[in-house]
Simulated scan of single mutants.
Amino acid sequence: MILPIVMVLIMYLLLPAALLRSLWKGSVQSRTEWYVKLLAIALFFVWIFFSGRWDWVGYPLRWIWAFLFLAAAFASWKKARRLPAKTSLSRKQKWSIAVYAFLALIFGTYNLGVLTSHWPADEALELSFPLRSGTYYVGQGGSQVQMNYHSTHSAQRYALDILRLNRLGTRAKGLYPKKLTQYEIFEDPVYSPCTGKVIEVRDDLPDLTPPQRDPENPEGNHVILTCDGDDARLLLAHLKRGSVSVKNGEKVKEGQRIGRVGNSGNTSEPHLHIHAERDGAGAPLRFGGRFPVRNDLVKN
């Protein structure tokens, strides 16, 4: 539990602050050196803005960092514009330019993955959103691993992990609490995203204390549906024990309550996992014509 907290603090607080200080206060000898440095830092902030997990530290913080980057870039440019375009470089400066050029290449590649994750390559399943109790956040979503770690598995390529945000824009009270009720989404009602038929149900697995997992029962308590007019299997997973209100073989209507969000199965914390598959391959999900990716919000 300590490692993810440390990583969050470094990635979303310490590293952005250090890079902004370097851009604002750091010294360069030429505009060329400044351009390379600015490009690398800008690409880092673009990458973290779109692909960062802002539900951990507060969704508004992504906008604060964006504003501070623009302010630091402007302040830095006011100094750099007076410098010569080129100048003879010391060995230290050559290494600095090489490092920033390498970082620009890395984060440029990352951002390409972020961009392409917004466009699915397969026919989407049109659904209604299965949650209705507040502001929901897409923690994992998209067609590329930069935005969705599920995409490395064929059947879950377009899977979504959905959480709920509180007034501070975080998913829980604290960074990684053990108490399930401190997670905003825990026990939220889950509704059928389509009219169709229930083809599988499980409801007897315990809700685990984070970070405990149950890899032997990855879906945990769950409901699998087939929607009318489509042969895709639609899974809604990690439901609360004893909350599932439908039975195998039952016909369900869109908007009918089918359970509550829990923390059962192979899950790190309470959230709703949803994905569809056709013949073992993942199918994209659209809600109101929208293909959700990480950092998207749905307000219901």
Rank of each mutant, 00 (worst) to 15 (best):
I2E: 13
F50I: 07
L61R: 11
A159G: 05
F69G: 08
G139H: 12
L19Y: 11
L285H: 04
V261I: 01
I5T: 13
W24S: 00
S268K: 09
R21M: 13
H238G: 05
L131A: 01
L239H: 07
T195D: 07
E277R: 15
D207S: 12
R164C: 02
L163M: 15
D203A: 12
I106G: 00
F44H: 10
N221M: 05
A159V: 01
S30A: 03
A124L: 10
D214P: 12
S143D: 07
L127E: 04
Y183K: 10
L165Q: 00
P206Y: 08
Y110I: 15
M7K: 14
G262K: 07
E184K: 11
R278A: 04
A159E: 02
G174T: 00
I199P: 06
R286P: 01
G141N: 08
E33R: 15
A98T: 10
K240F: 02
L112P: 00
H118G: 12
A232K: 07
F49G: 00
Q93P: 02
P206M: 06
K37M: 10
W47R: 11
K197E: 09
N111S: 10
H273A: 03
S96W: 08
Y176C: 05
A172S: 15
S268P: 00
F45Y: 14
L163R: 15
F107W: 10
D204C: 04
G288Y: 07
V223D: 03
G142W: 03
S90A: 07
D122N: 13
P189E: 09
G174Y: 03
P210R: 13
Q144P: 02
D204P: 08
Y136I: 00
A159P: 00
W34P: 02
R260V: 02
S268R: 10
N300E: 11
S154Q: 15
N263G: 06
D231C: 06
A73Q: 11
D279H: 13
A42I: 02
R260Y: 01
R213L: 00
A80T: 01
K94C: 09
W47M: 11
V138A: 11
W77K: 15
N148F: 04
N263A: 09
Y191T: 08
I106D: 00
R290L: 03
L131Y: 06
P215D: 03
A124T: 07
K253G: 08
P270S: 04
L15K: 09
A124D: 05
R213M: 03
F107I: 06
V246R: 07
L13S: 10
T32G: 15
A281C: 05
S27E: 13
I106Q: 03
F49M: 09
G139K: 11
S243P: 07
N300S: 13
G52A: 11
G249I: 01
D279F: 06
S51N: 12
M1E: 06
S30R: 08
L70V: 12
P177E: 03
G229T: 01
L160N: 01
D203L: 09
R286G: 02
V46R: 09
N111I: 04
L38Q: 09
Q182F: 11
